[in-house]
Amino acid sequence: MRTILDFEKPIAELDANIEALKRITAEQGIDKSDEIAALERDRERLLREIFRNLTPWDRTLLARHPQRPYTLDYIRAIFDDFIELHGDRQFGDDGAIVGGMAWLNEKPVVVIGQQKGRDLKERQRRNFGMAKPEGYRKALRLMHLAEKFGRPVITFVDTPAADPGVESESRGISEAIARNLREMIMLRVPIVSVVIGEGGSGGALGIAVADRVLMQEHAIYSVIPPEGCAAILWRDPKRAPEAAEALKLTAHDALRFGVVDEVLEEPLGGAHRDPLAAAQTVKEALLRHLPPLQKLSVSKLRESRYERYRNLGMWQIATE
């Protein structure tokens, strides 16, 4: 079942009309090409119009769009010969984080990312992309593998949050995330992270400490989901759209705060309308950002990653 967001509805209506005209052309041999071309121009104009005026809440919905490409879609489209590796060697294998060896053009890399599910069964198996401690520990194990063999690390971020349940608490979800933050800062190989959907708080950051952080145009990155923020602020989760505004969670906000280095443009109408084109943009960006990082000495690489994070934040000096 295709999901159509409210603001996508006018587009969907035009799509239906275009489809109908095409059917008439095919079935009855009546030439409707002029009308089709006109409608397609309307559709294009409407898409541009709608996407020029997206609110932060619209983007939140786009970032969570059920048809949006997920990590494995990007891995398939961007890399060659991906071999998925499983397990944290301590407890188990977490379906919410996938990772393994792959080739980016002619270069071997380690790829890691949060993975949501496409259908109900897969969503449950992957826990809606909410990783447990074993997921973060698997990610770290793969990063250390990359470090040992001098391969750069690429991570794809797409999670509502880390798993908040009793099991995760029992196995030290906080420790697992905290350790990743510390270890990623010290890693001796380049790391590039791409926020492709939901950058959900500490759960996202747990695989997103990197030399370069890229973010897709309609992805979000936030300290708390807008619904949770609205519940705390106004005791009303329905005011999430206002909270989304207040939280400054869009890619351009993240760029302005220095959290993100580049915003990656998505195909008109969002990545889900043309996943391959979206993947091509990501691939080009990776190919642009990785080589200069690979030329740096290990100490320079680590020092500049350290400085990048050390300098984040906006505070002030009290005057009195």
Partner: peptide, 26 residues
């Protein structure tokens, strides 16, 4: 936890403090 009112910048303090903790560790 992190201070909601500073959004993403609060989240980044997690990485910032762990970055300096990494130096202490080393």
């Amino acid at each position: 936890g992190a201070r909601m009112q500073e959004g993403l910048l609060s989240l980044m303090q997690m990485a910032k403090t762990c970055a300096v903790a990494a130096k202490l560790h080393e």
